[in-house]
């Protein structure tokens, strides 16, 4: 009887896993992966052979529990040389992905170089898709500096820091959906977030906004 009770307590203990930081930059996540997560993990498996990356925006909050879907996953990659890009593109094609923006490799590379985003989906599908961009501005590049790792049961993903995500969604993007994403992250990680860092990113965003306004004059 006692043994049976102990076994049931033990079972409860080992099967109960809350998403949590295992160190300053790593989140352990034991979620049941959905089709969007599997799409992302499949794409990243190919991408990471060619470039560093950081996933930003909506999918970050979805990965971490938000109750919504998205049709596109935004990602920054470091600028690639043409030869590397061609290998990456070929590898994607060999693994059943296509580019929604065309097939001509030189043209696709030129788009990325211009700062435009390329969208990749599974062959003959459009949703979900990855929106891939080279980092261009300092703010884009900065998102690599404090990216964090999310460990899932089928692989790791690099995402933008939670503080940076919250600040961008709350003070830069500001749509209803973005404010909800920020609220989700703030609530789920309320015991972990660095509020000073969010305030710091807010200032950076405001500075960036002023520079943009001057450039547009």
């Amino acid at each position: 009887m006692l043994l049976k009770n102990l076994q049931s307590i033990y079972k409860v203990t080992i099967s109960f896993a809350l998403m949590h930081f295992i160190d300053r930059t790593t989140i352990r996540l034991d979620k049941v992966l959905n089709e969007l997560d599997l799409f992302v993990l499949g794409f990243i498996l190919i991408l990471e052979k060619y470039s560093d990356y950081v996933i930003i925006s909506g999918y970050v909050s979805i990965l971490l529990g938000r109750s919504r879907a998205t049709e596109d996953v935004d990602i920054f990659i470091r600028p690639l040389q043409k030869e590397q890009f061609l290998k990456f593109y070929q590898d994607l094609r060999n693994h059943g992905f296509w580019c929604l923006n065309g097939e001509e490799e030189n043209e696709l590379f030129a788009y990325l170089r211009e700062g435009l985003a390329l969208r990749f989906a599974q062959d003959q599908q459009t949703i979900p898709n990855f929106e891939v961009k080279f980092t261009k501005k300092q703010l884009d590049e900065d998102s690599f500096r404090d990216r964090i790792i999310v460990q899932t049961t089928k692989g790791n993903l690099f995402i933008s820091s939670l503080e940076r995500q919250i600040a961008f969604k709350r003070y830069y993007l500001r749509s209803e959906k973005d404010l909800e994403d920020a609220a989700h992250l703030e609530k789920v990680f309320k015991d972990h977030l660095n509020r000073d860092l969010i305030a710091h990113y807010k200032q950076e965003i405001e500075r960036y906004g002023k520079t943009q306004a001057r450039e547009n004059q």
Binding site: L18, M19, K31, V32, N34, G65, R66, H184, E186, K187
Partner: peptide
């Protein structure tokens, strides 16, 4: 959004992610 986030924060990953 806040209600669900609290649910995610306090429940097993398997629990909320099956619903998601």
């Amino acid at each position: 959004v806040e209600y669900w986030a609290e649910y995610v924060r306090t429940h097993d990953d398997h629990d909320w992610s099956k619903q998601q």
